[in-house]
Each structure stands twice: as structure tokens, then as C-alpha cells.
Computed example of a mutant assay.
Amino acid sequence: MDTTLIIMAAGIGSRFGGGIKQLTEMGKHKELIIDYSIYDAMEAGFNKVVFIIRKDIEKEFKEKIGNRIEQYINVEYVYQSLEDIPKGFTVPEGRTKPWGTGQAILCCKDVVKEPFVIINADDYYGKEAFVKLHDFLVSNEAKSDYYNMAMAGFILKNTLSKNGSVTRGICIVDDKEYLADIYETRGIQQVNDKIVCDNAYVQEWITLDHKASMNMWAGYPDFIEYLDKGFKEFLSHLSDFNPKTKEYLLPEIVGQLLKENKTKVKVLETQDNWFGITYLEDKERVQNEFAQLIEQGIYPEKLWK
């Protein structure tokens, strides 16, 4: 079965080089975090990559990443932009940023016709999650009465930064390992052996061992079709929020589908550590983590032969 890895990279800045965290070199041969994700996905069985980028960074992106990856796997590009909205709607005055992760995945509707997994360009997820999500996709199918999905369930303590607070989708999981609810929570950090955060309700029960979403979702093309309908509804109610900043976000979309009993999301636990450069101070730590993985034989020193 064909399966696609969708990589959200539209947030990469146009100033390539120093200061752009997605393009920080992690491996000894200039490998980026994104290289390791694609390598792991290919090992798990994925045979196509779709990059979601902005048109203004296409040339630089291909030079830095895309042209190299095209030698090893089928690659396609789609483009996220602020102006890409349905007929009958207009961009609010003063808005400068695109519409969030939901709109980003919607950009794939014409090129993704097979089961898929979604990831961020600047996150390292580990091998286990790719294998489990790929196995889910090939052993299941789209359903007619609900959106059949899965997500990688990271252990919260394995996703934290020592250099400041983070934002995570904090998950409530039922006894059958399905997602019951998800709370997009900001200001998360560990203080001694406890977690503190900006959400007073979540603060009452959150622990180091809670499951967290890192925006690694698995689904079928019918979910992308739903995003098209949902985006129009989102824009119709935009005036209820701040039109300049409100985003169409995957955790909120999935959360609403859960409330309406229109989706079932299998939470596939992974014990792997998540790595990412949330802060500049994270760079050296993450580079050291990759060095250790290479020393342990999990990755070759030169990723692409």
C-alpha cells in the first residue's frame, strides 16, 4: 500500500542560514532534523513525501533540502498562503500570517490520495512512532461513519525543554487507548517533580506521564476532504475571534470532531524522546542527542550514502 509523509514546513523563514531553527545542521554531514524524520519514515514503509512550503522559499528550500531528498523518495510540493481561501471570503485587514496547520494540510487535497502521516519539519519523533503509525494505516481503512485516525502519544516528560516552557496538546485517553479529549496547553514546564502550565483546569491533573500530542497524526484522504468543509465554517465564524490571529489548528479540529462523535483516534504510545529546537539554547543539546544515537548505531554517521 502506498503511504505518504506530509511535512509541514511553511513556517521556515526566508532567511536561510544561521538563525533558522529548522535548518540547523544536526549530523556530522550537515543532516537536518528533517533528514532523520524522512529516513525513519522510509524505513517504516512510507514511499512519498509531500512538503508544505511557501512559494517565496521554494528555491532555497529545494537547494537546502528538497533536491537531496528527491534522490531517495518520491517528492511533491504544495504551497500554503494567506490568500488561499475559498470563494466568497476575504483576508481580514491587517492579517499577515497564513491560517494554521489545518489549512496547511488542506493544501494537500490534490496530491494526497493515499493514507498519510503528518509531522512538523522541525521536530524529531524517533523511529517507533513512524513504525506504529504506518502499521496502523496499512492494517486499517477509511470508515464511512467516522474519520478513522491515529496519533503518536508521546510521554510528556520526554518532550520538555530545559530552557523554557513549551506548548503541547495534552491528551485524555480512554481505557481502550482512544483519544477522548485534547487540550492545547501553553506554558508547560517541569518544576521539581511536577508540571506547571497556563491552563488552570489542566493544571489540576496533569503529570509528567501524561500523553502529549506533537502534531503527529495519521489519517486517510477523507479527513483532508473534511478540512475543506471545516475551513469554510471556520472562516464563517472568524468574526467571533480575533480575525488577525485566529488559526485553523489540527488539535482543535480533531477535538471538535471528538465532541461530535465524528472521529475515532487511536493513541499509539511511543517511548522515544522528542527533540526540537524550541529555544536557541536547545541546539547543542539536540546535536549531542543525535551524536549519541549515531554512537549507539541507531543511525549511520552519514545518513544518505
Rank of each mutant, 00 (worst) to 15 (best):
G126M: 00
V91A: 01
N273M: 01
N192F: 11
K113I: 14
K232P: 13
T167K: 06
H134N: 09
T3A: 10
N74K: 07
K194T: 07
A152Y: 03
E204I: 05
A104T: 14
A180G: 14
E76R: 03
E25L: 04
E184I: 13
E128D: 14
I12V: 10
A291V: 11
I206Q: 02
L82W: 03
I69L: 02
M42G: 14
V196H: 08
L82M: 06
L257F: 00
G153D: 06
F241V: 07
D181K: 08
Y36Q: 13
I52A: 07
K259P: 00
A121G: 15
E260K: 02
E60S: 12
E225D: 14
L156W: 07
K229Y: 14
S213R: 05
A129Q: 05
G45K: 11
G219W: 01
E295F: 11
S144F: 05
K143Y: 07
G19E: 05
K157I: 01
P221V: 09
G100V: 04
K244T: 04
I20N: 05
C108S: 15
E281A: 08
V196N: 03
G17S: 02
E76L: 13
L179S: 07
Y39K: 09
Y36R: 14
E184D: 05
K28I: 09
K48Y: 15
Y279G: 00
P98S: 12
M1I: 03
K109I: 15
Q80A: 15
G187H: 14
M8Q: 06
K132C: 10
K30Y: 06
H237P: 03
V131D: 05
V117F: 11
I294S: 04
A44P: 08
F275A: 01
Y39L: 09
T245Y: 05
F61A: 02
E260N: 01
I206T: 05
A291L: 11
F46S: 13
S139I: 07
G11F: 03
V49W: 08
E204M: 11
D135E: 12
A9N: 02
F61R: 01
K64Q: 05
P115S: 14
S165F: 13
Q292P: 12
K262N: 03
K127F: 14
I118L: 14
V111E: 11
S165W: 12
I155Y: 00
W99D: 14
E60H: 04
